Simulated assay, not measured.
Amino acid sequence: MSVARKNAWAGALHRLEDGVLALAVFALVLLATASIVLRTGFDTGLPWLDPLLRMLVLWLAMLGAMAAAREGRHIGLDIAARWLPALAARVVRMLTYGFAAAISAILAWQALRMVRDEYEIGGIAFASVPSWLAQAILPFGLAVIALRLAAAAFRAPTPPADGIPGH
């Protein structure tokens, strides 16, 4: 597959990911507003709405973390790498990103086990939505984050906008 074609696929995947993230934010705001209006204006509510909102917050957190890992905007402690020579900064980057990728992969595996257990239990999150489906974003998102961090470990550090070397 050519580089241009890979970039086109990656761009389409990133736009899809951003679209799902934006849709989830929109749904969360709309449904939370509806909940507030129903409770304050009509002294009623929908019993499935609060669990749905909690699930949307979970999905937003994971989708946001995936996007942050994609863009290299995740939380990081790169103070040492900022002041090290280029080669040392690259080694430190490989070690820290590799460690973060390994931890994310372990968390993804454990989340997959949790979702599998939830599937076997057959719990319901809200309405007729099974708990395992609501939690499925956890192993998926953590696996994507692990892959993105692992790939970033082998990329050369990009020069920072603030001009500080070694970033």
Score class of each variant (00 low, 15 high):
residue 145 I to A: 00
residue 130 P to I: 03
residue 44 T to K: 06
residue 45 G to S: 15
residue 73 R to Q: 05
residue 109 W to I: 05
residue 151 A to W: 04
residue 130 P to K: 01
residue 127 A to H: 11
residue 41 G to A: 05
residue 93 R to C: 01
residue 60 L to Y: 03
residue 96 T to Y: 08
residue 114 M to W: 11
residue 50 D to W: 05
residue 83 W to F: 12
residue 146 A to C: 03
residue 120 E to F: 07
residue 40 T to M: 10
residue 112 L to I: 01
residue 106 I to N: 05
residue 88 A to S: 11
residue 65 A to L: 07
residue 110 Q to N: 10
residue 129 V to E: 06
residue 16 L to T: 15
residue 76 G to P: 06
residue 70 R to T: 09
residue 153 A to E: 05
residue 114 M to L: 04
residue 124 I to S: 00
residue 13 L to R: 11
residue 141 G to P: 02
residue 84 L to E: 02
residue 44 T to R: 12
residue 14 H to V: 12
residue 132 W to N: 04
residue 128 S to Y: 02
residue 40 T to E: 03
residue 43 D to W: 14
residue 27 A to I: 15
residue 135 Q to K: 10
residue 56 L to V: 06
residue 77 L to V: 06
residue 138 L to C: 02
residue 43 D to M: 13
residue 11 G to E: 11
residue 97 Y to H: 14
residue 63 L to D: 00
residue 87 L to W: 15
residue 110 Q to V: 07
residue 84 L to F: 02
residue 32 A to I: 05
residue 101 A to I: 02
residue 92 V to R: 08
residue 36 I to N: 07
residue 75 I to Y: 08
residue 30 L to K: 11
residue 139 P to R: 01
residue 69 A to C: 04
residue 17 E to K: 09
residue 85 P to L: 08
residue 33 T to W: 15
residue 90 R to Q: 11
residue 21 L to W: 15
residue 129 V to D: 01
residue 150 A to F: 09
residue 124 I to Q: 01
residue 69 A to P: 02
residue 59 W to A: 03
residue 153 A to D: 02
residue 95 L to A: 13
residue 35 S to W: 14
residue 79 I to Q: 11
residue 31 L to A: 08
residue 85 P to H: 06
residue 17 E to T: 15
residue 32 A to G: 13
residue 57 V to T: 10
residue 118 E to W: 05
residue 39 R to A: 15
residue 10 A to D: 12
residue 34 A to R: 13
residue 123 G to S: 12
residue 131 S to W: 04
residue 141 G to I: 00
residue 41 G to H: 15
residue 29 V to K: 11
residue 23 L to W: 14
residue 28 L to Y: 00
residue 12 A to D: 09
residue 115 V to Q: 01
residue 77 L to T: 07
residue 32 A to Q: 06
